[in-house]
């Protein structure tokens, strides 16, 4: 239980430290979402497959690049916990990209 609380607090403080960036990203994403509503794009389900494909691609690339994005290198990823952490961070990046790709795809394909 303590560990869960620790993780929640750590990411909460991390978010506070990067609040400007997070708000900026959210505003852009919200703008895209509004645009898909105004421009009467195709149904949402049509964007799921391309978003998922891009997410998988981004996950693979991110998995290789995450260590070097944090002043380390893949050579320092040495055991199961390291691999899990890198996979998790890469999944977060892929997820973020996917939520942008989905509305962008709808706007481009309308």
């Amino acid at each position: 239980m303590y560990e869960i609380w620790l993780i929640i607090n750590t990411f909460y403080e991390l978010a506070l430290m990067n609040l400007g960036l997070i708000v900026g990203v959210f505003v852009v994403w919200a703008g895209l979402m509004v645009a898909t509503q105004i421009k009467k794009t195709q149904p949402w389900c049509t964007s799921m497959k391309p978003a998922l494909l891009v997410a998988v691609l981004v996950w693979v690339v991110s998995f290789m690049l995450v260590p070097s994005m944090t002043k380390s290198s893949f050579a320092n990823v040495t055991y199961i916990l390291d691999y899990l952490v890198v996979a998790g961070v890469a999944a977060a990046i892929a997820g973020l990209v996917a939520v942008f790709v989905a509305p962008l795809y709808l706007l481009v394909r309308r």
Partner: peptide, 25 residues
């Protein structure tokens, strides 16, 4: 899963990015 005597990227990431947020909490 932590192996204290194993060189670790995870331990690096904690020090480099995640310990300060937990410190502030």
């Amino acid at each position: 899963l932590v192996q204290p005597l194993q060189d670790s990227y995870f331990a690096w990431l904690l020090k480099y990015r995640l310990f300060k947020p937990s410190y502030m909490a």
